[in-house]
Computed example of a mutant assay.
Amino acid sequence: MDYNQLSDIKVLVTGSAGFIGFYLSKRLLEDGHKVIGIDNLNDYYDINLKKDRLKTLEQYSDFEFVKCDISDKDELMKVFKKASPEFVINLAAQAGVRYSLKNPDAYIQSNIVGFHNIVEACKEVNVKHLIYASSSSVYGANKKVPFEETDFVDHPVSLYAATKKSNELIANTYSHLYDIPSSGLRFFTVYGPMGRPDMAYFGFTNKLFNKEPIKIFNNGDFDNDLYRDFTYIDDIIEGIVRLIPKPPTGNVKHEVYNIGNNKPVKLMKFINSLEEALSNKLGEEIRFEKHFEPIQPGDVPATYASTDKLYKAVGFKPTTSIENGLQKFIDWYVDYYKNNNGI
């Protein structure tokens, strides 16, 4: 069965006020499905952005929102038992590599305790497929590229990465013990309109309008520049929805998949593309004031996804270029903050 053959399914999405959770919930609702959204609406970044995402979702009659923290097991169990979802997509997590250096407790609470609660709840309601967010960060400082799902990933270089690797291990164990079909998605640098303000493309744009320089953590080394596999939000969502009706089979019903663009971009090319997108939108030449600094603890020099496994499973590879994706982000950003008196 493929996604287009699904009819009127009930999906529980955690992190529904978050970036990926919002777009996924919106797509599912547009396709005629029922969505139970869970989010704790924390203030890791601008809460108004989360509230605006929720306002959009609440316009759909088949959307139900429950404010709940996945680390609260009792409350989470109540939501699961009342909703009895057929499919669960866990996107709730404490995100960010650098933030984990300052606030490690938040990562243990949300990404490990919270995730354990999710799989426990899935066990109780017999879900058909649990899909959960992992991360490209599990590959650590892997020098073999492109990164493949079979690569060794036991040397994470940040606590965030370690928590995501733990999610994969926990999901694998629960699939083995309790026959819960589970798929982990290793996301590669997701970006787009209404995205996360802590991501570089968003933060750089904020600094431009605040007339501040941007910090580039590559030591100014253009020959050995950092590069990232930037993946546009629409491509991420298409990959997720196509995977919903394809739970793993076999002795242990657990798989992990990369979702990346398979076209890594050097950091400086990414910045130049952002400058061009801003110039196009504002009608004048835009250039950032750049300050170069050493690479930060926990950062990795490169991310580069092999997408062969996902393509074999669902027949899809991301296609959005960095130029088109960043232009869509900038067009949204300027209009959104103008309307909200932000610029």
Rank of each mutant, 00 (worst) to 15 (best):
Val113Tyr: 13
Gly192Arg: 10
Glu124Asp: 09
Ser137Gln: 12
Tyr174Asn: 03
Pro146Thr: 03
Ile108Thr: 13
Glu168Gln: 09
Asn111Val: 08
Asp154Glu: 12
Val119Arg: 04
Lys211Ile: 01
Asn172Leu: 13
Pro181Ala: 12
Lys164Asp: 11
Val127Thr: 15
Asn206Ile: 00
Ala171Phe: 08
Ser136Asn: 12
His155Asn: 15
Ala106Glu: 15
Arg196Asp: 15
Ile170Gln: 08
Asn117Gln: 02
Val97Cys: 11
Gly140Val: 07
Ala161Ile: 07
Ser110Asn: 14
Gln94Met: 14
Leu169Trp: 01
Tyr191Ser: 02
Pro146Arg: 09
Ser175Tyr: 02
Val113Ile: 15
Ile170Cys: 01
Asn103Trp: 10
Gln94Trp: 01
Gly203His: 13
Thr173Trp: 13
Asn172Tyr: 12
Ser137Glu: 13
Gly203Cys: 06
Glu124Trp: 01
Glu212Ser: 01
Phe188Gln: 02
Asn142Ala: 08
Pro156Lys: 12
Ile112Arg: 11
Ser182Pro: 01
Asp154Asn: 15
Lys143Cys: 01
Phe202Ser: 07
Phe204Ala: 05
Tyr99Asp: 11
Asn117Tyr: 03
Lys207Gly: 04
Leu208Arg: 00
Phe152Arg: 10
Gly192Pro: 06
Lys102Tyr: 15
Lys165His: 09
Ser136Cys: 14
Leu101Tyr: 08
Val125Trp: 07
Ile108Arg: 11
Lys143Trp: 04
Ile112Tyr: 10
Thr205Ile: 07
Arg196Asn: 15
Leu101Phe: 06
Gly114Pro: 02
Gln94Arg: 14
Leu130Trp: 04
Pro197Phe: 09
Thr205Pro: 05
Glu168Thr: 01
His116Ile: 09
Val145Pro: 00
Gly192Tyr: 08
Met194Gly: 02
Gln94Cys: 10
Val153Lys: 08
Tyr178Lys: 07
Thr150Met: 09
Tyr132Arg: 08
Asn111Lys: 12
Arg196Tyr: 03
Leu159Asn: 06
Lys128Asn: 12
Ala133Glu: 05
Asn210Glu: 14
Met199Val: 10
Asp179Trp: 06
